[in-house]
Write a protein that binds this DNA or RNA. Structure first.
Lengths: 350, 350
DNA sequence: CTGTTAGCGCGTTCAT
DNA sequence: ATGAACGCGCTAACAG
């Protein structure tokens, strides 16, 4: 049906050329604006004729054909593993804001299995937010064979691609130490991924800080969950329902902290008073909610990420602009807000 | 840098052919795994040589070039207006599950401005989740000129594209009437979009049901917000902080209902006891949370949506398969869960 | 049965 | 302002 209706076929540049009575070259020049209105080459009346013809036919240039010739797709791909994470939404928002004025369209790849897709689907640049162990080789090969990559990963060295490292360790340490000013019974909420319990630097910061303060680590204070909001909520509920429940929670991601706040309130606790909760990531979400979320995270992270990605996307042709640091490191800050305020000797919970 | 490293350029089919010592046609046959009409026509040793060469060069077929020839991109585009809405995540999840086995990649377009993008970026099919008044013409034109569209919209007739209608009115009426069994002071949370206060059928269901029950509508019980979760949270807090606060809330979307639950808990109320909250949409999220969300919504919606979209995407070539209904209507059900349980005469709140 | 030649389909771009 | 080559992978028609 859709196909059979009215014209049905997609108009090509040749149809436009015929209707306007000019050559395809002229049409191309007019519509891509390379020699169009002011420049030398196409007269105003001709340009008008072409535009009218294109309009009448409903002509739209074919990206695929254009890409084959120019090597550019005017597209960046964002491969985001966990779309429900506000972190991903922040990435999207920033990139979109930066890309649209440049005429570049961000496309989001929700599948975690980017390896298969990125080889064939070309984009001017690709952002990848998570690299599993077994994907590293594929990543390297993609970069070797012409895919422009920007990868978010703490433990990766740049090899033909950019690495954005947001070194979490020291920042997370700050978060736990902030809690240690007012607490002794501190729980940890962390996703049970490969880098979960032992390897993750975010978890290690918790272990180390506790050890350093001379506090033994309690197994029942570690809430592992399945990397979903619902899982984090359940884990928080579990931990907060213990007989001698913790007075503070350190969550290794902001969305887990948000879930923990909801869980605490559901259990009738006042967050920031009865229990302190701090997150990791400095997501915009946390700033806007109530109580506002105390967190640690990089400053200006998303905007700088977007700028780097788009610089790479647009620098495809001019090799000079491609130079520059292949690693982007971010300093982390502590953002003390309502969910885990400063605690003095008078207000501390031990 | 990325460009200059090792090989740097993207290998083409010709490079593979040269390295393998065969023609490009042979390479194409081997790598796409087909041969004209008859059976497989490339000898094993040759096929091996080709595969080895392709592997060594890191060759990946170029989608753009393939698309230009075959007219198919093996891609569907999902244009989703509000990515933070769990509804969008459900769409993505369903489509992904259905698409991947078919070798089709779903790409997500987060920008609400799909008009510009869809003309140039070709996909085998496109799903659009919201059409503003001024976009209707553009939509029609896109469909006329060969874009395969599936549109989610209540008030649109199919004109060269499929329309998915999930007629909300009667379902929403059921939601409000469910609350009316136990309540008289019922608030409404609804986004203040164009279709917000007056036009939206979801809001109208509230007005009509109240009128029908002989309850005058109170302006301070209508919480308008800005179509964000944070906004919904604020609106819910506002309504629940009124001197004679409502005992029930009808939220016109599930995410607003979720925000309302959080707000109520934050205010120390027990949801499902002190206050009942019901949503609209039947999102998976609501089922998993605690308390589970009472809601109304279509049954089997996301899977059927995905199936239709992929049928359209794959039927591009065979016109026969394109026949069928251009409108997909969904019956709505009431899902009574914890956040707004059944109320008998004994438990009603008035 | 196996492999190659040649030309297609796009929009772009260089010479004319 | 134009004709024709170009870049890519696909595939009908052909040659061995």
């Amino acid at each position: 049906m859709a196909k059979a209706s009215s014209t049905g076929v997609r108009p090509t540049i040749r149809m436009v050329a015929e209707l306007a009575g000019v050559s395809t070259a002229t049409v191309s020049y007019v519509l891509s604006g390379r020699r169009g209105d002011g420049g030398p080459g196409v007269s105003d009346p001709t340009a008008e004729k072409v535009k009218a013809a294109a309009e009448r036919l409903g002509y739209r240039p074919n990206q695929a054909a254009r890409a084959i010739r120019t090597g550019r797709t005017n597209t960046v791909i964002l491969s985001l593993t966990m779309l429900s994470d506000p972190w991903s939404l922040s990435v999207i928002e920033s990139v979109q804001k930066a890309a649209v004025p440049l005429g570049i369209t961000p496309m989001i790849l929700g599948d975690a299995d980017w390896v298969k897709v990125l080889g064939t689907h070309n984009a001017d640049a690709v952002f990848v937010d998570a690299v599993r162990e077994e994907q590293r080789d594929a990543l390297r090969k993609l970069a070797e064979h012409g895919t422009t990559l920007v990868v978010f990963d703490e433990g990766l060295e740049p090899e033909g691609f950019d690495v954005i490292r947001s070194i979490a360790g020291p920042g997370c340490r700050m978060a736990v130490e902030h809690l240690l000013h007012g607490h002794r019974r501190i729980a940890c909420l962390t996703p049970a991924t490969a880098s979960g319990t032992s390897g993750g630097s975010r978890y290690r910061a918790y272990s180390d800080a506790l050890a350093n303060a001379g506090i033994p680590e309690r197994e029942d204070y570690v809430g592992l969950f399945d990397a979903t909001s619902a899982g984090a909520y359940a884990a928080a509920t579990r931990v907060l329902s213990l007989p001698d429940r913790p007075t503070a929670i350190y969550a290794t991601t902001d969305y887990a902290a948000v879930s923990a706040i909801n869980a605490a309130q559901r259990l009738g606790m006042a967050v920031g008073t009865d229990v302190d909760i701090i997150g990791v990531g400095n997501t915009v979400e946390g700033e806007r909610m109530s109580p506002s979320l105390s967190t640690v995270g990089p400053v200006d992270f998303f905007d700088k990420l977007a700028r780097l990605l788009l610089r790479r996307a647009t620098a495809q042709s001019s090799p000079e602009a491609t130079a520059g640091p292949a690693v982007l490191d971010f300093p982390w800050h502590l953002f003390v807000r309502e969910s885990a305020p400063h605690r003095s000797a008078a207000t501390r919970l031990y």
